[in-house]
Design a protein around this nucleic acid. Structure first.
Length: 955
DNA sequence: CACGTGCATGAGTTT
DNA sequence: AACTCATGCACGTGT
């Protein structure tokens, strides 16, 4: 019988001395069952001469055609599937070798058949009833799903590959055998199947909750849970539990409230342990679960338990809570992350399975993020001859604090209270923990009062951490060796890939991985002593499924976990990869990204987009209408100060006509027609044709558009190109000139934090702003209270002094940067020329096109640019007299902006960089280009005057 | 001044 | 809303 784990996947009992013969296996032999399951199996009679209890399958699990008479005793008319269910003769033959003859009751998992075999209330619902009440289409779906499930029944090596592929693709599959079984059916073979979610109420009734035909990611999610403790009967999915009559209304997906707490051994291991037999149920489970994650939106208990905890966070964790049912949470996965089967060269499933700790589930709701994870591979290797049992307790990704010099490792409260000795005094207790090398360490296990709670820490871990060469992002695992109850501490180094994006979530380090498997585990330990511990060192879940999958892959070959690799597998194919030096920045980033830093993980593209949006918004800003600014002089420069926030003006496009005269095109808010306007017009946020005082012939919406659709398209296309280019340039610029210190502050002040917060930068050590103290002159603290800020030019308050000082500093820095940029530009001249020529080419094309059209429609060539781009050389251009938004007085925005930019202009002149600041609209292409390239600079100079006090150091 | 200790804070997560 | 926990930080002690 190969394995010591009961083959009833819902049982998983180990270490029993009595084994019973179970159902025949396709691969030969019979499944072995623990005594209890075996006894139940023997008693299982579906039909005493034909269909007495109505508990057998009546339909082919594959094609759904009714079996001969529905009596499973009639063995010549059907074949039992290893993983459960019954196949009619034709299906069974066609699906060979997946189907086996079976006289007995079926066991395993049938596509539609799920049994809550929790002890007494094992519920075997005839699928006949199911089929009676479920429409044919849905049944077909189920069949297909099941078919997909069968893909697990391939010959071992093949299956293994598939399994790995699937699992890695999905990241982690979730198997909760302990009375909670997750079934999902992969979409691999039937990609277009809908999803099914079953629910079974606590009273043992089963229901179909949802059948989502439209779902593109098929899945079958099931949850079995039983409040009872021990199963007295083991029949994984006989007959089918779905009782159509009772199908209803339950919101949860296949919840049976079946949460056996006792048996810790993952029956699922069976498949992993016994290669010959593993092709059955467990694998189909895995596969199913994996896919299951993709679908169900229902708060099913499985989600919590079987799928990665972090992703399941919204659902109750039955595993931890014992009695609760467990949802399957289909989590959308990034398709890109399919791991190739190559990664599983060993032919074994190397899925790292998060297993709810064997103990403590009842007393503490251990978050899945702390579940120890172990790969199938590891399990398989571990489940050999064992002299002792390893009970993985929990794991934790080291935070910066944990790995820091303080020497304090914060323990998850639930874990500490569940697995460490109870302490009533804050001082705690000394605790001895063995590491993977066999060293014993003494830590102080203690707690701090914290908000009416406790915060548990292990103190004095620095030597241990250092000896293991751990750092933030790495994972430590706590396990227990039985008998003896010794605590052992394993570790797992974070892989590079994880470091970069998945600091557990980061997202690795922390976010829950969708699809965590959760088998309670008492793992048999082949190797006594220290080394085995490494087997439990796992990575933590990744928020990002594919990353997690990658991590799984990488972890398998992690050299740090030398034990199972060296001793058993010799899997080192990726070791080199893992050992590749990780850049400091990557490490740093990862280290600083805690599990909770999701917020900081804005994708750089998103940031770019955001920044661009912000910049565009800057372009659209107009001084508040009908508000007269007050004038503030700082460093001999006058600034307009507004009591009201700026308003957004109307976006328009700018073109350069053949006569080099710039034109502006704006769209009527009523008729959406584009009207040509003088370039220096600044439009209000809402503008219609009726306000077109510059072209009386087109003062009405009924007037035809001047520009043909073609021209318009070209114009918009050019605009898009410009935008793209701008993004690239901004990106490059950001990389080349990463602002720091005051620069960053200044940038933030001018363009908003997005400038500083590029993708990479967004990953900071902390999201918190340093606490402000009296006298703090940071950009935040120096800002006057909202709506205030009226200081006299001679004011010597702290704010004004700081503003002036920073203003100076910034100007100097800006000058320096410009000089550097100039030098770089000189170097990159060729490249720039190339780029420009490309842009010019585009522009020329547009221009030619426009010219052509102008012949017809009088429209000149156009170049798109943003609002307020009609600047003339060397001037900050907030655009001429924007009627009525520009004051006729001398204190215009233009003038103020000019004043504001004066120092910069001076610097520019000194540095012969004037042409960089702004450029006359010499030609179409150049105009386009310069508008793009100079924009940011101009914006720097043209910092909103109403902001000049608060952000006075910005310019 | 450096380091250690214990509590406080607040972002993120879970209920 | 409550809770968890990573980390900041004040304060005490040691060098």
């Amino acid at each position: 019988m190969g394995s010591r784990i009961c083959m009833n996947v819902l049982c998983g009992t180990t270490n029993t001395h009595e084994w019973k013969k179970g159902w025949p296996l396709r691969s030969g032999g019979f499944a072995h069952l623990c005594f209890k399951c075996g006894a139940a199996y023997e008693k299982l009679v579906y039909c005493d001469k034909f269909h007495a209890g109505e508990t057998g399958w009546r339909d082919c699990s594959l094609c759904r055609k009714p079996l001969h008479c529905g009596c499973i005793v009639s063995k010549s008319l059907y074949e039992c599937l290893d993983y459960g269910g019954v196949g009619c003769i034709s299906c069974a033959k066609s699906s060979q070798p997946r189907v086996i003859q079976n006289d007995d009751v079926l066991n395993g998992f049938g596509g539609l058949k799920i049994s809550n075999y929790s002890d007494r209330q094992s519920t075997v619902v005839q699928n006949g009833a199911f089929s009676n009440t479920v429409d044919e289409g849905k049944l077909l779906q189920l069949c297909k799903i099941m078919e997909a499930n069968e893909s697990n029944l391939l010959p071992q090596p093949q299956r293994g590959d598939i399994n790995v592929s699937l699992v890695q693709k999905k990241q982690e599959e979730v198997i909760n055998h302990n009375g909670e079984v997750g079934l999902g059916f992969s979409s691999t073979t039937q990609p277009s199947i809908g999803s099914l979610t079953f629910s079974k109420s606590d009273n043992g009734r089963t229901m179909i909750e949802d059948m989502n035909k439209s779902s593109s990611q098929p899945s079958l999610s099931m949850t079995l849970g039983s409040p009872s403790a021990t199963p007295s009967f083991v029949l994984p999915f006989p007959g089918g539990l779905v009782d159509g009559r009772e199908q209803s209304k339950t919101p949860s997906s296949f919840q049976q409230g079946h949460g056996r707490e006792q048996s810790m051994t993952p029956s699922f291991q069976q498949g992993l342990v016994d290669g010959r037999e593993q092709s059955k149920t467990p694998l189909s489970f895995q596969q199913g679960l994996v896919d299951g994650r993709e679908q169900s939106k229902t708060p099913s208990s499985f989600q919590q338990g079987l799928v990665d905890g972090r992703e399941q966070s919204k659902t109750p964790s039955s595993f931890q809570q014992g009695q609760k049912s467990r949802p399957i949470l289909p989590k959308p996965l990034k398709p890109a992350v399919t791991m190739s089967s190559e990664t599983n060269k060993g032919g074994f499933p190397n899925v790292r399975v998060a297993r709810p700790p064997a103990e403590g589930r009842g007393k503490n709701q251990l978050l899945p993020r702390y579940w120890p994870r172990i790969t199938d591979q590891e399990l398989q290797k571990l489940s050999g001859d064992l002299n002792s049992t390893i009970v993985p307790l929990f794991e934790k990704v080291l935070s910066a604090s944990d790995a820091g010099r303080i020497g304090r490792l914060v323990l998850p409260k639930a874990c500490a209270e569940a697995y460490f000795p109870p302490i009533s005094q804050s001082e705690g207790l000394p605790i001895r923990i063995q590491d993977v090398k066999g060293n014993e360490w003494m830590f102080q296990f203690r707690f701090w009062p914290n908000n009416n709670s406790r915060m548990y820490v292990l103190e004095g871990v620095t030597p241990c951490i250092q000896s293991m060469q751990l750092q933030a992002g790495d994972t430590v695992t706590f396990s227990r060796i039985d008998p003896g109850g010794r605590l052992v501490m394993g570790f797992r180094k974070a892989s590079k890939s994880l470091d970069m994006q998945d600091p557990q979530t980061s997202m690795l380090p922390n976010g829950s991985t969708p699809g965590e498997t959760s088998c309670p585990s008492v793992v048999e330990n082949p190797a006594t002593g220290s080394g085995h511990l490494g087997l439990f060192q796992t990575n933590t879940g990744s928020k990002d499924p594919h990353l997690h999958a990658l991590s799984e892959h990488l972890h398998l070959t992690d050299g740090d976990m030398s034990l199972h690799k060296n001793d058993y597998h010799g899997h080192r194919t990726s070791e080199d990869l893992l050992q590749q030096p990780v850049s400091n920045s990557d490490k740093k980033r990862a280290r600083n990204i805690g599990p909770k830093s999701k917020r900081l993980l804005m994708h750089s593209e998103d940031v770019l987009e955001l920044r661009l949006t912000w910049e565009e918004a800057q372009d659209l800003l107009r001084p508040p209408p009908s508000v007269k600014p007050s004038i503030v002089t700082i460093e001999d420069h006058e600034f307009e100060e507004y009591d009201e926030p700026p308003v957004f003006g109307k976006r328009s496009l700018f073109t350069a006509s053949s006569s080099e005269r710039q034109e502006q095109w704006a769209q009527c808010d009523d008729c959406s027609k584009w009207r040509r306007l003088p370039a220096d017009v600044l439009l209000p946020p809402k503008w219609t044709c009726s306000e077109n005082s510059w072209d009386t012939s087109r003062r009405s919406c009924s007037a035809p558009e001047e520009m043909s659709q073609k021209d318009l398209d070209s114009l918009l296309r050019a605009s898009k190109d410009l935008k793209k280019r701008r993004i690239i340039e901004n990106c490059t610029e950001a990389q080349e000139h990463e602002p720091s210190g005051l620069d960053a502050l200044a940038s933030a002040a001018i363009l908003g934090d997005n400038v500083v917060d590029s993708g990479e930068q967004s990953v900071g050590a902390t999201t918190r702003h340093p606490r402000h103290r009296p006298g703090c002159t940071c950009i935040v603290c120096i800002q006057p209270p909202s709506g205030k800020g009226k200081h006299k030019p001679t004011c010597t308050c702290n704010v004004c002094l700081t503003v002036r000082r920073r203003f100076k500093t910034l100007m100097m820095r800006k000058k320096k940067r410009q000089s550097e940029r100039e030098a770089e530009n000189a170097q990159k001249d060729n490249n720039n020329h190339k780029d420009e020529s490309e842009i010019n080419g585009t522009s020329t094309e547009v221009g030619l096109h426009m010219n052509h059209s102008s012949e017809n429609g009088g429209c000149q060539s156009r170049i798109e640019a943003d609002v307020a781009e009609s600047s003339s050389a060397g001037q900050i251009d907030l655009n001429c007299e924007p009627n009525p938004y520009v004051q006729a007085s001398g204190l215009t925005l233009l003038r103020l902006a000019d004043a504001a930019s004066q120092p910069l202009n001076n610097y520019m002149k000194e540095s012969c960089l004037t042409n960089m600041m702004c450029e006359p609209q010499a030609g179409i292409g150049s105009s386009l280009l310069t508008q793009a390239t100079d924009e940011s600079e101009r914006r720097l100079s043209a910092v909103a005057p109403w902001d000049c006090e608060g952000r006075g150091d910005a310019d």
